[in-house]
Design a protein around this nucleic acid. Structure first.
Lengths: 340, 340
DNA sequence: TTTAAAAATACAATCGATTGTATTTTGTTT
DNA sequence: AAACAAAATACAATCGATTGTATTTTTAAA
C-alpha cells in the first residue's frame, strides 16, 4: 500500500502553476485571482489533496493545537471540562491533544515533553496529585509558551490559575453540616501535597473554629480518595468514639464509605450526615442521594481555554500571573438533611 | 516572548560538528563514535534541546501517532477503552490523539480530515450513531492508512472490527429475564441505524421466539438512550397493559426509567425486572443495583490498539478484513432477581 | 500607442530533521 | 612507511508548505 499523498507540487505540475500560487490559492490569499483559485481548488478536490499540516506547522511555527493534560479522563469533572475546552478550541480553530497523567508525576513530565516536541501553542493542565516540583513546567516555559492550570492550582511564577475558592467552599460545606446539627465531624482529605486539598482542609478547620467546635487531628483522614480508601475510612469511623458527620473531598470515597457504613447498620443522614465533592453522576442516584459541590466544570473548561487563547494571541505581552476564581454550587440532597 | 527553540543546527554550530552527525548522535546511530555522542548529548542538554517532531515526522513520513475517535470520552466504556489503547500505545512508543465526535456525523467527518492532515499512522474509531455513510472513511483509506472499528462495527471493506457478539449477548440477557419468569418484556433499543443496536434487538427477538413468547412491535422503543429518553420510555411503559421486564440497550436510560417507575410505585424487580448494558459505575450503586453487561472495555482497547499496530507495521501486507469478537460478561444484580 | 500603476504569478529561500553518498580520519597489516 | 579497509564525519538533497521579493501580465490613464 503505497503512500499516495497529494502535495501542492502535484497540483502545481498538473496545472503548470507555481506551487507558491497554489499555496496562496488554497489559503484564499487576495494575491491570487478568482479564476486561478477556482482552477486550483477544483484540481485539488479532483486529486484528493489534503494539506500536510506537519509541513505547514513546521514552516509557520504555529501548530494551532493546544495540549490538555488531566489526571484521568474518566472522571466526570474532567471530561466535562474537556468538553468545554473542546468547544472553545473548535470555535477558535484549534486542535486539542488530550492526555492523561494518571496522577503519575513521571508520566506528567513525559507528557510535557511530548507537548514541547509536538510544538503545541499552549497547555492546559490539571496537575497530578503527586506533583510537588515544577521543573518540567519551567523547562516548558523557557520555550516562551503559555501554560494555564485549572482546577488544581499551581504556585508557578508567570502562570494563570483557573480555580474555585476551595477554602471558601470547604468552609461552606462544613458549616452546612454544623447547621444540620453535626458536632463530631470527620474530614476525608486528599493528599496534602495538593494546594486544593490543603485549602479545603483549611476551610473545614475554619468552620469548626467559627462555631467553637474542636478540631481533632484524628478526625482528619488523608488518602487518595479512591473507592477502597472510602471503605478504609468507613472502618476508621466505626472505630472512633463519636461521629455524626463527614465532609469528604470527593464523591467517590464518600459513596463507598456510606455503602460500607450502611452495611454496618449506620443510618444516613440520621446517624452520620455526609457531604461530598464534585457532583459525580452517581451521587444523585445513590440512596440517600449525596449532598455535594458542583464545580463549574464545563464553564471552567471554556474559561480556561479562552484565557489560554488570549495569551497565545498576545504572544507574551499580557499580564499572565493571574488567578481566576469561579463559583461552585452546593447541592443539598438527602445525605445531609437532618432537619427537614 | 521570543521563540528560542534550540535546533540541531545550534548544537552543530556550538560544537563545529555537522548537523547530520548531530542528528545521528541524538538518534544513537552506530555511525557516530561514543565520544562525539557524549559531547553532543551533553551540549544538547545544556542548551535545552527538544527535538522538533514536526520536522522529524515530515521528513520520515512516520508520525508515530494514532488517532482515536469516540462519541464521548465521558462514557465509562470509552474512557476505559481509551485507557487500554493508551497503555498499548505507550509501550509501542506511539502518541495518541483523542477526539470526540459527540455522535455527530459532520463532526466525525471533520475529525477524519484532521487525522489525515495530521498524518496519523492509523485510526481507531467507534463510529457515531448517526453515521450511515462511509465516504469519509474511504477517502481516508485512499491514503493507504489503516482504520479499525471497535465497539460499534462498520461494514466498510478492508477494515477490521473489534466487537462483542451483540446478537448473542442480546439474546442472553433476554433469556435471563425469561428464566426469572418475565413474559411481557419491553426492549429499549438504540438507533437502528447502528449495526450494534440492530444486533441486540435481533437477539432480543430470537430469545422471545425460542421461548415461544410473542414479539410485539409496540414493546420495542427506539431512542438515543439518553437520560430523558429513559423517562419518556418509563411513561410509555406505564401506558402499556402489561409489562414485567425491560431489556435496555444501555444503563443510563434503564436507570432513569427505573427512577421514574419507582416514583410511580412500581417495585423493581418484583413488578418489573430490569437489565441494562455497559456496566456504568452508577449501575452498581443504584438501588436496586442494576443487572447489566460488562463489556471488556479496557481489554478491547488493548486488543484494538495492538491489531492496529500490527497493520501499521505490516504496511498493508496483511489480511485486514477481519472481525475480532470478544466475550462480554453478564453481571446479575438485584434489578433482575425475581427468584432467589 | 505608450507608459505607469496595479494585479497576478513565478522564483527561491526557509522551517528542522533525516539520510544516501562522498570524503576524511583512524587503525591495521605488511 | 605504504596501502588499504574500516570507522567517523561532512556534504547536500529532501520532506511539503509558506512567504518575501522579483518578474510578468493586465488594466487604465495619458
Amino acid at each position: 500500500m503505497k503512500n499516495n499523498n497529494v502535495t501542492i507540487h502535484d497540483i502545481s505540475k498538473a496545472l503548470e502553476i507555481d506551487s507558491s500560487t497554489v499555496s496562496r490559492a488554497l489559503n484564499n490569499s487576495p494575491r491570487v485571482s478568482q479564476k486561478t483559485k477556482d482552477k486550483i481548488i477544483s484540481k485539488a478536490n479532483e486529486l484528493g489533496y489534503q494539506r500536510n499540516s506537519l509541513a505547514s506547522k513546521l514552516r509557520t511555527n504555529k501548530t494551532h493545537s493546544i495540549g490538555v493534560i488531566v489526571p484521568r479522563i474518566s472522571r466526570h469533572f474532567f471530561s466535562s471540562a474537556i468538553a468545554g475546552i473542546e468547544e472553545t478550541a473548535y470555535d477558535a480553530g484549534y486542535d486539542v491533544i488530550i492526555c492523561q497523567s494518571l496522577d503519575d508525576y513521571e508520566r506528567e513530565k513525559k507528557l510535557m515533553n511530548t507537548m514541547l516536541s509536538n510544538r503545541v501553542d499552549g497547555v492546559l493542565i490539571s496537575i497530578s496529585m503527586k506533583t510537588t516540583e515544577h521543573d518540567h513546567f519551567k523547562e516548558y516555559q523557557k520555550q516562551g509558551l503559555p501554560i494555564l492550570f485549572f482546577d488544581r492550582p499551581c504556585a508557578l511564577a508567570n502562570s494563570t490559575n483557573v480555580i474555585i475558592d476551595d477554602f471558601k467552599i470547604g468552609k461552606e460545606v462544613t458549616e452546612h453540616l454544623i447547621e444540620q446539627g453535626c458536632k463530631d465531624i470527620v474530614h476525608f482529605s486528599g493528599p496534602q501535597t495538593s494546594q486544593l486539598y490543603q485549602q479545603r482542609t483549611k476551610g473545614f478547620k475554619a468552620a469548626l473554629e467559627k462555631h467553637q467546635l474542636p478540631f481533632r487531628e484524628e478526625y482528619v483522614f488523608e488518602s487518595s480518595l479512591m473507592k477502597e480508601d472510602g471503605i478504609e475510612m468507613a472502618k476508621k469511623i466505626l472505630a472512633l468514639p463519636k461521629v455524626d458527620g463527614v465532609v469528604s473531598s470527593n464523591d467517590t470515597s464518600a459513596i463507598s464509605a456510606m455503602q460500607h457504613l450502611k452495611e454496618n447498620g449506620i443510618r444516613i443522614p440520621q446517624d452520620i450526615a455526609f457531604v461530598g465533592f464534585s457532583n459525580e453522576p452517581v451521587s444523585a442516584v445513590f440512596e440517600p442521594s449525596l449532598t455535594t459541590v458542583k464545580q463549574p466544570d464545563f464553564e471552567m473548561g471554556k474559561i480556561a481555554a479562552s484565557l489560554l487563547f488570549e495569551q497565545i494571541k498576545s504572544e507574551g505581552n499580557l499580564r499572565i500571573n493571574q488567578t481566576k476564581i469561579l463559583e461552585p454550587e452546593l447541592i443539598i440532597r438527602n445525605s445531609s438533611r437532618k432537619k427537614s
